[in-house]
Design a protein around this nucleic acid. Structure first.
Lengths: 107, 107
DNA sequence: AGCCATGATATGTGATTTCATCTATATTAC
DNA sequence: GTAATATAGATGAAATCACATATCATGGCT
């Protein structure tokens, strides 16, 4: 009965348009049919967690589990977005998959 | 087919035990039967996104959508920026009110 | 030692809901 | 008209729910 938060839907669509991709393009990369992307973006269906995870990762994002008290700080960090800035050095290890495309994000 | 990442399952269980709650207690607060908490924690089922969201919020956490390039920074923030304490240097822009820290523990 | 009660966790069955896929079509915008 | 998006069938798989039950601990008891 719940729907996934509108900000998620909006962010998904925004990230997709930011890359200039169609729903079919995103669906192709995420392994989802095109009608599903539409249903998810419009909030008509709430996806499984793994489905949403595939989707957001294709779009160059990720879902991170954070304490509620840190949500404002994380949001500020994201809003401020030093995307790819080398200001901070990685005292952590970036793990798993790389995903492949990337390269230039927007032509 | 996918299962939700083991770190999520582990974090859920860890957060639950940290509060000293039983699966029934968490399920009661999240509006889920106890068997579901078990299935989710053991990774036998992958929940819907809204279900997982209810669960993590009951446990005082949240799922935040962040760019992949910021995931390491967010993880670092979650790691040492423990809940509520404000003593670290702000590598995030504080645009919202932060009230006064001043205190500083520094023994 | 053993035995029994209690609590917590995992598993099982059956019914319901709904995601997920497929195909086709309507709608909207260029 | 073409492309992109939204909607609507039908079907299969899986989550979700509510029940019961098995397993696995702990603790208290004679």
């Amino acid at each position: 009965m719940d729907r996934l938060p509108e900000n998620i839907s909006r962010e998904l669509k925004a990230a997709r348009l930011r890359r200039g991709w169609s729903q079919a393009e995103v669906g192709n990369r995420a392994g989802l049919p095109q009608t599903h992307i539409s249903g998810i973006e419009t909030g008509r269906i709430v996806p499984r967690f793994d489905t949403l995870l595939d989707l957001v990762r294709v779009l160059g994002m990720d879902l991170v589990l954070v304490p509620q008290s840190l949500v404002p700080a994380v949001n500020a960090l994201v809003r401020d977005g030093h995307t790819g800035k080398a200001d901070e050095r990685p005292l952590y290890a970036a793990d798993d998959d790389d995903g492949g495309e990337g390269g230039g994000d927007t032509p």
